[in-house]
Design a protein around this nucleic acid. Structure first.
Lengths: 163, 163
DNA sequence: GATATATCATTGAGCGTTCAACTACTGTAG
DNA sequence: CTACAGTAGTTGAACGCTCAATGATATATC
């Protein structure tokens, strides 16, 4: 059990900041997810998988690496790749040199779907986040995010490095 | 269809900010959710329901208002309240004056569960977010969040409720 | 070389969310 | 009063995620 000593409750300002962040981040992510589902027929999490694969050499990545870079559990990724395989956007390939492992590889069809979805998504990210903020705010947001990521990496481990 | 003109892709800095925010917010929310599940046996979303009810007069709120203040769909809330009722933490009461409506009411047992969960949760929010940031950063985060929230309220309409 | 331990990935069950009906009621217009 | 559109809330199916268990292979230890 944590919190052996007295709890330091949030003061009014902290409370307000925390709730604003909670609502805003959820709302933003939900909006982008709905847009992705509507425009590309896949959840945003799957889009991210395709993006990572498209950026990798040979459009292929070990399942573990992929999971690590997405901060996703292996189980989740495995289920997701199964789905993406059924859609014909990704295939699995066995891994030479380590027979436990496997690669996920982006297909041409998967690349085409990604290329079709990307402009709309970027437009959404701009419209709902980037263009709403002053340049300084965007930098602040990055710094804040990186602080939080570094902290959680230390706490939970998981070696998910900040890109 | 959106994006009739050329897409304004993200430059390197924008990309980095966006991805850092995406990873950090997801990781933070996931961590707090796991802690809540482990310590209180419920997802963070359900905790938020109990919090809103605890703050309401008579610890009761119309389903719609509750959904609105949580930015949750009615369907989601309905399923959630069904679960919370099964746990004995919430009950439904019919709404006098509008026979379509119903109230969700926090039970004493629900209040006790909430009171037991709150210190650990606040400690987590502090440890993973608030205490990681300089005071100015927390204010920045609030401003950024409020900008995004205002924008999305204008776009999706829904002064609170997600369709 | 044999045994133990760790790692890579998958599977199935259970849960929460979404989406699209659907019911039941309210308010308004003719 | 009737008809009709709008609102409040619920439901069930489909889907994605979590968690714990499992199989298969690799690595370390003796």
């Amino acid at each position: 059990m944590r919190n052996v000593s007295e709890t330091r409750w949030l003061d009014e300002g902290e409370q307000r900041s925390w709730r604003a962040f909670l609502l805003a981040s959820r709302r933003l992510l939900d909006t982008l997810d709905r847009e992705m589902q509507r425009d590309a027929g896949m959840p945003h999490a799957y889009y991210e998988i395709l993006v990572r694969l498209s950026e990798a050499p040979d459009r292929a990545l070990r399942m573990s690496e992929l999971a690590g870079s997405l901060l996703s559990s292996r189980s989740r990724l495995s289920h997701a790749v199964t789905r993406l395989e059924e859609s014909g956007w990704v295939v699995r390939r066995s891994c030479p040199g380590d027979r436990r492992g496997s690669f996920a590889v982006l297909t041409d069809q998967g690349y085409a779907v990604l290329a079709a979805a990307a402009p709309g998504h970027v437009t959404g990210v701009r419209a709902h986040l980037i263009d709403q903020l002053a340049p300084g705010q965007l930098d602040q947001l990055r710094e804040i995010s990186e602080v939080v990521l570094r902290h959680l990496d230390e706490v939970d481990g998981s070696a998910g490095a900040v890109p």
